[in-house]
Design a protein around this nucleic acid. Structure first.
Lengths: 209, 209
DNA sequence: TAGATTGTTAATCGATTAACAATC
DNA sequence: TAGATTGTTAATCGATTAACAATC
């Protein structure tokens, strides 16, 4: 699980896409693939594929290419998909529900145990995953009693800024942030933000240029 | 609205973040800001801020800095936020609902007129925005009668691959893609993807390294 | 005017691509 | 073995940072 050396962010950001394409190839029954062929399918250079993969060690074989299943598995290990993550969701609104109920996350080891909302009664019927619904008031206590790796934060910016310190104090190590704000956390806590409105602005830029 | 020269993708991706910080500064009543001060707040170099902004022309003034409101407005123009976008949502599931009901998009000119679902009856009560709910079967006809700039695609990959050609044929110019797949569209159609599972994988990588 | 800060050029750094020797 | 394709080094390209003259 420890990395060999410092890997650039650009490389890491590409790994999930490799992982997705390799999964698709596996589903299609493809056993081996060359960087040249993968390059054609994915629309990136073969050179980049080989460079990227070699940051982590030699996964291929000269004259043969890469074994799809093996490479898929190795990338899973690099991304940390070979373990489970105790996960909670902050906010039971539509976005929180979408995340809580997306089975794909669970299948990848992100186990959503609980959903917190300021007004849990309002959503009692809507949460149909195995996750339990709690009041936000119970969050600090919950974190004392339960181990949580990841919290998905789907509440507005102001609420997020109040809740994040509680999460940090409660030992959460990864915050998946959907609030439209940057979050301030200690170095040992990781934040991954999904800024939907910024994504939409990038689309509107592209449409006009 | 035409760009002056070719602007790198890295610069464009940073503009929405500038826009957000400038909006916050406006709300706080700040009238002017120097690249040095903005650099301190945003955690990027002052050099980068000046370089980025200068791709679009001289927005600042030596010895003074930048006028916050003016700069905010200019970035809005660059991003295409000075016009409205006729928008539809494909998929009335939780994610589709989250997007349809997020007022922030509407405030920025993204007007959501319609939501399409294979099973619209199922969601009749849940869509509480001004958007009308239609069956996916009605999509092609709808596009003949209505102008649509942007479609947010929140259905699974397989459904997305079927629907995207319909959108393209119907004249949609921007696709905001939430399906876990890459989409193949003509050059004059723009795709902006939000790959949630890839974002989550990037978080799990960070947690383990 | 003097001080501050931009706009812009030059230097550095990092990432991507090309090339090819190693090797399966 | 011969052919194919990787692993890896070198070359290129692009993006970021530093520096400073221009100017408000």
């Amino acid at each position: 699980m420890m990395e060999q050396r410092e890997i650039s962010k650009a490389v890491i950001n590409r790994l999930p896409r490799y992982y997705r394409y390799l999964g698709n190839l596996m589903d299609s029954g493809v056993e081996r693939i060359s960087s040249g062929e993968l390059s054609r399918i994915m629309g990136v250079t073969a050179s980049q594929i080989r460079q990227d993969l070699n940051h982590f060690g030699g996964f291929g074989q000269q004259g043969y290419g890469y074994n799809v299943q093996y490479l898929h598995g190795e990338i899973a290990k690099i991304l940390g998909l070979d373990r489970d993550y105790d996960t909670i969701v902050i906010g039971a609104g539509r976005l929180g529900q979408a995340i809580s109920n997306y089975v794909g996350f669970r299948n990848r080891g992100f186990r959503i145990h609980a959903v917190f909302d300021r007004n849990p009664g309002k959503y009692k019927d809507l949460i149909n995953s195995d996750a339990k619904l709690y009041s936000t008031d119970e969050l600090a206590d919950y974190l004392k009693e339960h181990h949580v790796d990841i919290a998905a934060v789907t509440v507005p910016s102001e609420a997020a800024k109040v809740i994040v310190p509680v999460l940090v104090k409660g030992g959460v190590k990864g915050i998946w942030n959907f609030a439209h704000t940057d979050l301030d956390v200690p170095d040992d806590v990781q934040v991954q933000s999904v800024h939907l409105s910024e994504s939409l602005m990038q689309l509107s830029y592209k449409i006009n240029h």
